[in-house]
Simulated assay, not measured.
Amino acid sequence: MFRKTAKAALLAATFALALIGTAEAETLKLGHSTWVGYGPFFIAEEKGFFKEEGVDIQLVTMEDTPAKMAALQAGQIDLVASTVDEFPIYMPPGKMLRYILAVDNSKGGDGIVALKEITKLTDLKGKKVAFETGSVSQFFFDAVIKEAGMSESDVEVVNMTATDAGVAFAARQVDAAVTWEPALSQGANAAHGHLLLSSADKPGLITDVVAVTPETATKHAAELKAFVRAWYRALDFIKTNPDEAIKIMAAGAGGWLADPKVFEDTLRGIEYLDKPMNEKFFGTPEAPGQISQTLGYALQIWSEKGRIQADIKPVDMIDYSFIGG
């Protein structure tokens, strides 16, 4: 009887250890689009920083934003990288998300090009302005004109993608366009155009972050901290090995960024956020940083447009416990 009991206990212990091993080796899937800001993820993968820090990350390119957000809520992927303003749009009631890391900040890569005679935001009143509704371009435009005492009703909105907006401006079909590189520079360099305002003038307004569900934040806290540490190591690698880093990131990103020169040129419009920059951007619960203001703008702007399904406050989504790594 004792031998049977001991054998059963041994089998149970073996099974339990197997389960623990499986849990420890569980792969976390990170969904992201093709974007220069996510390049360091590929360095962390290529150089083994993820594994060395104690986390197994699978990078999954997903260009369809609604599908990506639905997969996150359904638990099909574990992390998603996107802009601060975008996540709340896809959060159904009772399905909160947590921001755990800021990865890059647009620093001139997004902006507004306008006719040369339009020299300030208030000059846009009554003018045709092209941008994609429901996108970060609309958020950026609404946020900056709000500070100028304006709203969308003051302009004639022409809905089109960021690329098409740049083309329309180049063809003088609109008076201004909210777009990003390379269309931004093309419009600014046109004989009839100039750069009215860029994201470099509004730091922290267009920032990519990584978000997870509260369940993932609790269940995989150690792995997420390891993920953050690997991100910081990847940024250190970029500083000490810039040429190799560009090649790794371009190859990893692929698509329109596969050419290292294109990747490097696009990189000039953003900045990667290291640990000190994350600490400043997040701040603390007692003294919130820029992320709280940016998210506040997003919640207000998208709520006014009926895009927010849940009752959310910035404090509900910002998790300060991971940026220390």
Rank of each mutant, 00 (worst) to 15 (best):
F2W: 15
T5G: 10
A8R: 15
L10R: 08
A12E: 11
T14N: 13
L17V: 11
A18D: 12
A18R: 12
G21I: 14
G21W: 14
L30A: 02
L30D: 00
S33R: 14
S33C: 14
T34S: 15
Y38N: 15
E45W: 01
F50T: 00
F50P: 03
K51V: 00
E52W: 09
G54M: 01
G54E: 00
D56P: 03
L59M: 04
E63A: 14
D64Y: 11
T65K: 08
S82P: 05
T83I: 06
V84P: 07
D85S: 14
F87T: 10
Y90G: 01
R98E: 11
A102H: 07
V103K: 04
D104N: 12
S106H: 09
G109I: 00
T119F: 04
K120L: 09
L121P: 00
G126T: 09
K127D: 11
E132A: 14
G134D: 07
F140V: 12
V144I: 15
I145W: 00
G149P: 06
V155K: 02
V157Q: 07
V158R: 08
M160T: 02
M160S: 01
T161F: 04
A162L: 10
D164K: 12
A168N: 11
V174G: 00
V174K: 06
D175S: 10
A176T: 07
A176K: 08
A177L: 10
G187H: 02
L197D: 05
L205D: 01
V210H: 06
V210A: 08
A211L: 10
T213Y: 04
E215K: 13
T218Y: 10
T218H: 13
F227E: 00
V228E: 01
R229I: 10
R229M: 10
R233W: 07
D236Q: 10
N241V: 11
N241R: 05
P242T: 04
M249E: 05
D259K: 06
K261S: 14
V262M: 12
T266W: 13
L267N: 11
G269C: 09
I270Q: 09
Y272G: 01
K275S: 09
M277E: 15
G283Y: 02
S292R: 06
S292H: 03
Q300A: 11
W302Q: 05
K305M: 07
I308F: 10
A310V: 03
A310C: 05
D316M: 05
M317V: 03
I318R: 06
F322S: 03
G324D: 14
